[in-house]
Design a protein around this nucleic acid. Sequence first.
DNA 1: GTGTTTACCGAACATTCGGTCAGTTGACAA
DNA 2: TTGTCAACTGACCGAATGTTCGGTAAACAC
Lengths: 202, 202
Amino acid sequence: MAVQPRHGRRGHDPESVLAIAVDVFNERGYDGTSMEDLARALGVTKSAIYHHVAGKEQLLARALDRALDGLSELVADERAATGPAIERLEWVVRRSVGILVDRLPYVTLLLRVRGNSATERRALERRRAFDAFVSHQVKEAAAEGAIRADLDPALVTRLLFGAVNSITEWYRPERGGSADGLADALVRMTFDGLRDHDGRNA
Amino acid sequence: MAVQPRHGRRGHDPESVLAIAVDVFNERGYDGTSMEDLARALGVTKSAIYHHVAGKEQLLARALDRALDGLSELVADERAATGPAIERLEWVVRRSVGILVDRLPYVTLLLRVRGNSATERRALERRRAFDAFVSHQVKEAAAEGAIRADLDPALVTRLLFGAVNSITEWYRPERGGSADGLADALVRMTFDGLRDHDGRNA
DNA sequence: GTGTTTACCGAACATTCGGTCAGTTGACAA
DNA sequence: TTGTCAACTGACCGAATGTTCGGTAAACAC
């Protein structure tokens, strides 16, 4: 798949540098991570990192784009634009869980961005665009009468994606189930409720 | 209420120093905040801060204790120990939302702690005790048949409190509704679901 | 072998970091 | 008016920060 270089020493490829760096960022926080920390995790010296990337912030930018590109693809998908709004919303939720699990470390990093640099603020803007998209879906579902009238759509959006985004805080691919199973459970609980009314559900 | 000192210049009291510092921590992140940033927000020089607190980490410790003490009181309350498990769980959720809104900046800070120092690790341990308490409540409710059998109790705990904790990410006391109204909506959605089945709900 | 390419090291850089300390300021009590 | 005491300033410290740069070592082509 990937084209291997013909000359020179073998070492880290751009992909592994990014993956390891993001892991450290998520463990200690971006601001709490020094280039020395990254160097230790990569098994090289600090200066060697600059052979692969322009600097710490570029590393962050590349990681955030990984997450945001996934969400952009979701928004552009035709399945988010056809059919009843409540079904479109369910699809968006399921796909969001899929992306979250698929690109877990990158999305985790994205959800912790506070806007301390131009890079972070750009990421926050792109993320807000996704939030607005989801919010619109919920409002349409409410307008079509598919969402309980005693719940504010804006609040539903936030609580629903509060649950979705929380996945980054506890999901671990090795012991957690499949992304589909996780999405199933999440949709069941948030759409139909966790309470059992007279043994209604198996 | 508060005992005012008799001598010396008027200036910041310990309370306002902590409140302002926590606001800056939440805006830039703890690691992303320098003592210089705090000094600017307080309107004093860096060195003046050390007249009020022993250092940056003590400021963090005091803030985290504010949040954790609230949760500890919740766990110790008898209302969390009497009655059907599902009702106890509902009370715990409502009370958690109350504490979260009441001590918003402190809980916000707590939920972002990663464990980079002894102070942070101690806070994480106390927080884990609370999580274990909640997890136990959910398991009891499931054992009593009050939670849908097709949902894993551990997963319910995480998604439920994922929604609860997300409040720190978007709730703003000035424009958001009351804590009780918020808790009502959250319980309605997570316990009974957001979906309207044949115009079931008003 | 030689030359080239890529990956890396080690030492330094300027800057910022959290924190210290000797002194100054200003509000109050007497 | 004077003394006291909390609040604060400004200059400074050593350590850590992100980054640069000249040189080196390993893998490959020839």
